[in-house]
Each structure stands twice: as C-alpha cells, then as structure tokens.
Design a protein around this nucleic acid. Structure first.
Length: 509
RNA sequence: GGUCCGUUCGUCUAGGGGUUAGGACACCAGAUUUUCAUUCUGGCAACACGGGUUCGAUUCCCGUACGGACUACCA
C-alpha cells in the first residue's frame, strides 16, 4: 500500500474559515492515523485575490490548533516548492504536454466574445458553456489555421489554454464518502487551464501538484465535487490514472439557522467567531474576533469540529487529539451537511476547561488580573479558580466572575433585595459582624459554624439568612459557594461589605 | 435553466428489512447542595412525502418535494 500523503491547500485570500479548519483537521487525522505525511500547499495562483498576511495567518492558526505539518513552505520537503506561484515553470511544462497530446488548445476569445456566445446560446435555450458543442464556433487553435495560431502567438496576443473534453465518456468517481458518482463528459465544459497571465487555474495546478507531490488522498470540501470529474479526466489525459489520489468530498458546514453554507455574516449576526484567530481585514480594517481570543481551547474546538460530520460509531464524545487520531476513518464521515451549533462548542470548551489543573487555570486568571492591574497571590488565585471551576465556560470567566473578590458591590440587585432582604435577615447579618473572630483569615467551615450559631440565637432559619448574606457580599443572587466566598474575602472585607449593605439596602418589610 | 450531492428528535448524530429507533447538546422537571452552580435521576422530542419490492420497510428501488453545491481567465 502506498504511503498516505495528504495536503491542506488553502488560498491566501483572507482568514482561514472554520470549515477550512475542519478540512485541515480531517487531513491531519488521516495522515497521523496512517503514519503518513501532512503537507501545506499555498494555492496562490490568483494574483488579484491575494491578501497580504493571509498565508501567515493560516500557518499561525494551524500552529495554534496543533495541526502540525510535515512539509510546506516553511518546513520544506522534497516535493517543493510548496507555493504555487513558485511553480509556474512546472505548470508550463505540463500544459505543453497536454497541447501536444491534443487534450488542450489555445483560445483567443475576448471577454466580449465569450459574453456574446453565452448570451446567444442562452437565448436559443441551450447550455451556455465553452465545450464540445460550442468550441467550433470560437477563436481557438481548433478552428484557426496553424499559421494563424502561430501568428497570434508570435504577436503576443492574449490567450488562454483550455482543456479539450472528449464528449460522451462516462467519468466515474469513486468517492470515499459519496460512493460512486458518474458523470457524462458531454456535460463538462472546456475549462481554462492556463490564464492569460500565464498562471494556471486551480484545476491544472491542483492535479499537477497532487501528482508530483504523490498525494494519496484528496480530502476537500463538497464544493469541489462538480469539478472532480474534470480532475479525473486530467489524470487520464496526463496518463496518470494509476497514480491518481483517492477522493473524499466532505459535507459542508451549514448556517445554524436557515439554510446554506456557513458564512462570516451568520457568525457575526449570532455573535460567535468563525476564524481561529483574530483577523483584521486589510481593506476594511474591520476586526473579527477569533476562537482563540474568545476563549476556546484548541483541543475543545478540534473535538467539536471533528464531530461535525464524523463520528466514531460509539457513544464516546470526548476525544483527545491522539484518541481522535486512533479512531478516525474516512468511512465514518457522513454525507449530509452539518449545521454549526455554537452551544455544543461551548459545552466542549467547558468540559476541556474543567479538566485542567488549578495551576493551569490560575494562570488564565493571573493574566487577566495583571492586565487589570490587580495584585493577587498565587494561593488566592488558586482558591478563586477552584471555587469557580464548575461554572466557567471560558478562561475569561474566572476573571469576570472572580472580580467580586476584588471589588465590593456598589449596588445591589433590587429584585433580590425586595424578596430576600427581610428584617429577620438584617438582624442576623448585623449580629454577624461582631461575631466574626478578630483574625484576618477564616475558613469556610468556621464561617459556617458562626453563621449557624448567630442564626440560631436569633431564631432565624438559614434559608432566610443565606440569600441575604450573598446579596450583601456579592450584590446578586448567584456565584460560587458562599462560605468559600467568605473564606476568600477574609474577615475584614466580609465585615466591611456587610456594614455597607446594611446601610444601603432597606428591609422589605 | 443545466449538472451533481443530500434528507433520522430544535441541533450533532447512532442504527439498519422485524428495535420500546440509541447517545450527546439545548430545553423542562425532580433529588442533592439549608444559597447559586455542579452532580444525579427523569421528561420532552425524529426516520420529508408518494409509489413499488417484501410476510414485513425508517432501512432496498423509483419518483416527488425540499435543501445544498457547482455552473469565472476564483479557489
């Protein structure tokens, strides 16, 4: 069996879309599973769409996700160069081969002439494509005399090279995901293989590179399915059918609501990221927040993405990268598109976040605290993180939820106050201030004992005391364990907040 | 319009000629936690439709509907 060699081949036309990340992931998983190679190829044959910084962005994103590459523009490798703009001479060679074998031809038609043809055919109710039925009416090396073609070429008239599709051939694609897909070549058009600027189109560059780079599996999005027959034909015309890779066309990532391909617009509207990292559009200067900056962990994102279209056939849903690598197979990829549900991504994130050690989590909190210029001992950070651990989804939640330990409430939730701030509770709370020991520290257990004693003395049930106490200490009705909160706050701060609340909030009865 | 692809709970999906159609997210309820969250238990909820084939079809076949992709000198 031949070595597994897969490629991720993005165009540097902007940020890497989350769908592209999934494609990269599936390629990566197959490579690792089979002990093969994963390579990055930059498909930058369209100069007009080139975006500064996009290639760098793609590499950084893959690096953040832990999708590492065996070959690529940076890693090198024996099949380089890995940037298509550096391979121009290679494509020229192969284009020549196709022309010599009669599988491609020069075409001199101007954009206007193409437009006219399409208009005309459409009006006649026909299929407006440049193909076996129309090429005889156009200006190309099939219709022009050899002398005329040489003259035009010599005069440097602009031209493209088109593939000459042989009509009435059954083209069969054995797709690893879709099964057998058969297309009649008559319905295919004579696609441009080389543009007038001398650059190849995707179709040519892709086939030539996959062949030369000994790619074993082409794993790409479903949007390529319609042109796969053309690619198969190209392998045939080149005489590479035996070496052709196997194809696997992935189902698309769909909008969360409604229909259609997931777009940046949807993500913006619903308030979730679509790019791995922050991306500032160079023309509009608009900043799109990335998954990383939103607080998603790479492993969580990858786990989530892997399950959008693939499943292991068991009930297990949590998979580390190495488990994913073990379990992955192209056969278990589904055919239908998957709607992108950010809630599930959050759930994965929460899960992965919780499984980290307190030390790791404290580091997240520490970063946010430093940025806010708040000093905090490491012990206290760990204490806070531990108290908050069960209720966070993102690393930043530690800071946002933990802020209550550093800033006393300035106002109190009125709704809660009107319900829980009873005169009974106020009585207990007032007595509580002086009941605390004069020490600086207090354990959650001691605090609990004291509260129990004071409440009992006043004859008030703790169910009435606790909500009021929480309100006084945090300003609201929810948060980490109350006794732990007191422990973290310390005696002095607890007393201070109690006194403040007692002067601020009016009893409701 | 043409070519191709798809369709199981709201979502991600398992399953596969005879099943109480399974799991997860979300949602709801109960228990625990004398607060909140966690956790646990339970609940809600699906085979697009029509015709075949068959003793039997959600599963196989054909249509229809709906959805999607592609239809550039973009990838």
């Amino acid at each position: 069996m031949r070595e597994t060699r897969v490629r991720f081949a993005p165009s540097p036309t902007g940020a890497l879309h989350i769908g592209g990340v999934r494609t990269a992931l599936y390629n990566y998983l197959l490579a690792r599973k089979n002990g093969g190679k994963m390579l990055l190829r930059i498909e930058d044959t369209d100069q007009s769409r080139f975006v500064e910084g996009a290639e760098e962005y793609i590499k950084k994103s893959l690096n953040w996700l832990g999708i590492d590459l065996d070959e690529g523009p940076d890693q090198g490798g024996e099949f380089g160069p890995y940037r298509q703009s550096d391979r121009k001479d290679i494509y020229e060679r192969y284009i020549k081969q196709l022309i010599e074998t009669g599988n491609a031809y020069y075409a001199f038609d101007t954009p206007e002439q193409l437009e006219d043809m399409r208009e005309r055919i459409k009006n006649e109710g026909g299929n407006a494509q440049y193909g076996c039925e129309t090429r005889a009416q156009m200006h190309n090396s099939l219709t022009l005399s050899t002398a005329e073609v040489s003259r035009r070429l010599g005069a440097r008239e602009p031209y493209v090279v088109r593939v000459k599709i042989e009509p009435n051939q059954q083209v069969v694609l054995h797709d690893l995901i879709r099964g057998e897909v058969t297309v009649n070549s008559t319905s295919l058009d004579d696609k441009v293989l080389m543009k007038s600027d001398g650059m190849p189109t995707y179709h040519l560059a892709n086939v030539v590179d996959d062949y030369l780079m000994k790619i074993s599996h082409v794993i790409r999005g479903e949007e390529w399915l319609p042109s796969a027959p053309l690619h198969i034909l190209l392998y045939r015309y080149f005489g590479w059918e035996k070496e052709a890779p196997q194809f696997a066309h992935l189902p698309l990532l769909l909008k969360p609501n409604g229909n259609g391909k997931l777009s940046k617009r949807d993500a913006d509207q619903m308030g979730f990221p679509i790019f791995p990292l922050n991306w500032t559009d160079p023309t509009s200067k608009e900043l799109a927040i990335g998954f990383k900056e939103s607080g998603y962990l790479p492993d969580a994102l990858l786990n989530f993405l892997a399950f959008l279209g693939w499943n292991p056939g068991s009930d297990q849903e949590i998979f580390s990268i190495s488990e994913l690598t073990q379990a992955f197979s192209l056969e278990r990829i589904g055919k239908a598109g998957a709607k992108f549900d950010i809630e599930k991504a959050k759930w994965y994130n929460q899960h992965y976040l919780r499984s980290k050690s307190n030390e790791e989590l404290a580091a997240f909190l520490h970063t946010d605290l430093s940025n806010a210029k708040i000093d905090c001992s490491k012990d206290k950070e760990i204490q806070i993180v531990n108290a908050l651990k069960e209720r966070v989804t993102f690393p930043k939640d530690f800071y946002e939820m933990g802020l209550v330990f550093f800033e006393a409430p300035k106002s109190f939730d009125e709704k809660i106050a009107s319900k829980k701030w009873t005169s009974e509770a106020v009585q207990v709370l007032s007595a509580l201030i002086s009941a605390f020991p004069a020490t600086k520290e207090i354990s959650a257990e001691t605090a609990h004992t004291i509260i129990q004693e004071v409440s009992a003395k006043q004859g008030v049930g703790q169910g009435k005391v606790m909500p009021a106490l929480r309100l006084a200490l945090t300003g609201g009705a929810s948060g980490p364990d109350l006794m732990t909160t007191i422990e973290i706050l310390g005696v002095k701060e607890t007393q201070k907040r109690l006194s403040f609340a007692l002067t601020e909030i009016r009893p409701n009865d």
